[in-house]
Design a protein around this nucleic acid. Structure first.
Length: 416
RNA sequence: CGGGGUGUGGCGCAGUUGGCUAGCGCGCGGCGUUUGGGACGCUGAGGUCGUAGGUUCGAGUCCUAUCACCCCGACCA
């Protein structure tokens, strides 16, 4: 992509109606546009990051036998009434509307009930289990207050996965596999070291659920960490009884601000009972399905990464999700420079490297500033100087100094 | 939903105890000079001051209502 063709433009100043760092940077750099409080458009640069995050998650979910699908965002009232959750007093984030004929419908804030209702049509015997399905869905939640930029909106993208198992043992195996898959996801996204599997309130069926909490000042949660034993406990469930169960003492814990980037639940057979979600076992008896639910807030993760990996110059994307890998700059109006830069652009692009080529006729300082603001991991400069040396000039986004290297050496850096 | 704050060209802001053609910076168009960390000169376009009503000879400025946005709290599978 050439910068001259990008319809978005960068801004020197942060918008006045955003306090959150993630929103300020993402808007300044042209990744997102605010439509209203808690609702953002993802622009060409932003959607590349979003898709890259989704791809990492997709690969890991597929690796544990997840099957991708996508459900509708419009939901039937009757389905939610089976569990009592159509009621606004029970679920206060509903967006509701009606069809022209008066039929009431809701917009999906979750897909738990609808997915059970859907799978019921296909699940007959134990031979069909387990079933692990997931989707990337835009959730709509009528939050009383949106905040923190893209980290807590009224509309957001979530990966939600659901497991249907024969029994507790089969469920547990998948639950553990998911924890491991989630760890790989966060590692690949560059936040693995700061993300903790955290004990949180479990609801009716189980003692605890597990949240994936990433240390982040802009987060909404407070977690108590035991770094020695690598145990984390959500503030909501820190009490002497629970700490004793986990074998840790209160004075060994460190209090940190975190953002919840994932949450996994064991529903047991509770919901299956309410919704009559059953299968026939090997001796012909009707059994309740054992359910699990596993979420990752895709857009929130993007916000958390923007918050954590940024400096005074702008964003700093991890290579795994950066919208482009190389920011290519030509300096000097001399024809040789332009030809050499175009050639390198074609060469790298032809090899599958995502290059953002700043072909604009603006001063170098502006190009460098934008390279930094956009947070592209690698910056390459072609100038009369580099051509004379038969080299290219390289600097990483986080590096202090640039260096002259060969194109081959650049390609080696891109491998990493 | 309770509390606090903010709405003035595309963006960021100033605008005194009510006063005359509503300013500044950035950005944008034209011309020229520039070209290794967001250049400079000249010039030009662009604003029903969130909206509605009211007070007044006169309202960006005062009053009332309302909408939007931000922050704190509450809420949050």
């Amino acid at each position: 992509m050439k910068v001259s063709q990008l319809f978005t433009k960068t801004k020197k100043e942060a918008p006045a109606d955003e306090q959150a760092k993630n929103a300020q940077l993402l808007i300044r750099a042209g990744f997102v546009h605010k439509e209203m409080a808690g609702a953002y458009d993802y622009l060409p640069l932003g959607i590349k990051v979003l898709e890259n995050i989704k791809q990492v998650v997709r690969e890991e979910m597929n690796s544990i036998s997840g099957q991708e699908l996508i459900m509708t965002g419009i939901q039937r009232k009757e389905i939610w009434e089976t569990t009592g959750r159509w009621d606004d007093k029970v679920v206060d984030v509903w967006f509701k509307s009606a069809l022209k004929d008066g039929t009431e419908v809701g917009f999906g804030w979750s897909h738990e009930e609808p997915i059970v209702e859907m799978v019921k049509k296909y699940l007959e015997s134990y031979k069909d289990l387990p079933i692990n399905i997931y989707q990337f869905q835009t959730k709509l939640r009528n939050e009383l207050r949106a905040k923190s930029g893209i980290m807590r909106g009224r509309e957001f993208v979530m990966k939600d996965m659901y497991s249907c198992s024969i029994d507790e043992a089969q469920h547990e195996a998948f639950y553990q596999a998911t924890i491991e898959a989630y760890k790989r996801v966060y590692d690949r996204l560059g936040i693995g070291d700061d993300t903790y599997v955290t004990f949180a309130s479990g609801g009716a069926f189980t003692q605890f659920s597990h949240e994936f909490q990433t240390i982040c000042e802009a987060g909404e949660d407070v977690v108590y960490l035991h770094r020695g034993k690598n145990i984390a406990v959500n503030e909501e469930v820190v009490d002497d009884e629970n700490l004793a169960k986990l074998g840790i003492k209160r004075d060994e814990l460190e209090k940190v601000k975190t953002a919840e980037v994932g949450n996994i639940f064991n529903f047991g057979t509770q919901k299956s009972k309410e919704m009559d979600f059953t299968f026939v076992n090997d001796i012909g008896e009707k059994q309740l399905v054992h359910l699990g639910s596993y979420g990752i807030g895709i857009t929130r993760v993007m916000g958390v990464i923007a918050e954590k990996f940024s400096d005074e110059k702008g964003l700093v994307w991890p290579a795994s999700i950066a919208p482009y890998h190389v920011y290519l700059v030509n300096i000097g109006v001399d024809d040789n420079v332009v030809v050499a830069t175009e050639k390198l652009y074609e060469d790298l692009s032809g090899q599958g490297v995502e290059v953002l080529y700043d072909d604009r006729d603006v001063r170098p300082g502006e190009k460098f500033a934008d390279a930094d603001l956009l947070g592209i991991p690698h910056r390459v400069v072609i100038s009369p100087k580099t051509i004379e040396a038969g080299m290219i000039e390289y600097k990483s986004r986080t590096g202090e100094e640039s260096e002259l290297i060969t194109i081959e050496e650049l390609k080696q850096k891109l491998q990493k």
